[in-house]
Design a protein around this nucleic acid. Sequence first.
DNA 1: GTATAATTCGACCGTCGAGTCGAAATTAGA
DNA 2: TCTAATTTCGACTCGACGGTCGAATTATAC
Lengths: 198, 198
Amino acid sequence: MIHPPERRLRERQKEERYAAIIQAALRIFAAKGLQQATMDEIAQVAGLGKGTIYYYFDSKEALIEGVLCSLADQYFQNLLEGTDAFKDPAVIAERIVTNLLERYQQQPELFQVMQMILAAPGGGPPRVREVFASKHREWLARLKEQAGQKLAERGFSVESFVDFIGTYAHGVLFAAVAGRDVEKLREESRRALRAFLQ
Amino acid sequence: MIHPPERRLRERQKEERYAAIIQAALRIFAAKGLQQATMDEIAQVAGLGKGTIYYYFDSKEALIEGVLCSLADQYFQNLLEGTDAFKDPAVIAERIVTNLLERYQQQPELFQVMQMILAAPGGGPPRVREVFASKHREWLARLKEQAGQKLAERGFSVESFVDFIGTYAHGVLFAAVAGRDVEKLREESRRALRAFLQ
DNA sequence: GTATAATTCGACCGTCGAGTCGAAATTAGA
DNA sequence: TCTAATTTCGACTCGACGGTCGAATTATAC
């Protein structure tokens, strides 16, 4: 009778540990950099033995991949929140940048580590690149569905619109990661995007 | 009679070696990342023994600092080339971005390594940050002198103008380092900046 | 309760790479 | 040419860190 719930309990515990490892790793990666982070320290912060980390991940590289793939999931989440209520591309763009900056404030580690990856030679492990690219395509499709009509009405192709937003947003995030004041960036970007997109 | 020239010869040789080390280090840093680059490999690429590297630089960290400070010098060079012939802030901005992209094509390693530094936790060694900040101030003064009048006439403060250009340019460079087509970026940025700055 | 499987642990191993050192080579100066 | 100073070199040291392993613990199944 209690067997099924017991089994579920154990599975849940396993998932929790997995998440705890990812979480600890992310924190240390952000604080020290990917190479400088040691498996010993990650284990310690996760509150587990080093051997346990290797029970969940084959290698440090696999752990890095795991962390990055979980970032990819999060990165594109909620980015479009609120964008379907507006018709003006400038407002959509503003909203996207604002959402990004809000996520940055909630979880700066996500972006810090992202930047490390993107700046790394080769742009990070191939598998991670694939995952990001696929998430990006998904996201693009969602944007198209949600705002494509409105963008087209104003003479924007979704692709070029996204290119511009992407480029600009990277600049803003770079500035945020480098320590610039987020409120100022938000205000600045609002003005810039309205001007650019009329 | 030949002593002074001989001495000068030796001094020049020393400077050449110093430069060769910096050069080799930059290449390997860009190709492999700062941590993954080994002193042995740098020595090999520079065509010198490892001990010799340590004769010129106290430590790997000192070498990194040396490389970065030499980058700071180069980074701001020629950025303003051609900007004093125009009155329109949009054209000045375009020109700055174009100059950056041209430098990127000439010497991508410079920007690759810059991005690594900026993305690193803490934004790189403090001394390097200082050097960059001081170069940036110098550059700002030069821009002010060269274009401040024209910018003011059009209602721009030099500081906010530079903030915007800096943010945007980072986004563009990020895209370039990440492998986007430079010509396309150049064209895109031209349109974007004209629109933004009227 | 007991046998089996799954999971955890940290002491241990091997490698790799930063930094050292002293011997060798080169140059300077007389 | 001879001596002292400068510079070069790479074999060596040594600590750090990724990864292993088997013993210990805990859960599962009956």
